[in-house]
Amino acid sequence: MSQQVNYDDVEVGTELPVVSYPVTRLSLVKYCGASGDFNVIHWNERIAKAVGLPDVIAHGMFTMAQAGRFVTDWAGDRGTVTEFGVRFSAMVVVPDDDKGATIEVSGTVEEKLPDRKVALALTARWADAKVLTRARAVVKLP
């Protein structure tokens, strides 16, 4: 359990260090089942390639979920996410091997808002591509 961050201690401009999140074919199969999104491009290499993709790609929502982990781990158990938005700017291609791909998430404290809310600007990268842009979360802190 991480230490609880308090609104009064948060400073605008603070950089939140990068965290790496792995994604494998198994991650995608599990995410298909848990989310109900069985779009073939997330599990079927044959069809993914037939529709012009380089290979199977991760659900955008899987990548967003990793950014969500980054936010909630920072905000602590007493923090509550009140807004969370992203633009999916590039695909995360997931090869059929044991290593898969790695999504790297980092963030910056962008703004302190009224009502003990803090806005975080987030960055998510895969293989040097920005896979999320305009990624921003607002959390209410103790």
Partner: peptide, 17 residues
């Protein structure tokens, strides 16, 4: 055509978890 669909943007506004 769902096979050609990718997710462009997603945003949530929460009143509570």
């Amino acid at each position: 055509n769902y096979a050609m669909v990718v997710h462009g943007e997603q945003r949530f506004e929460y009143s509570r978890p």
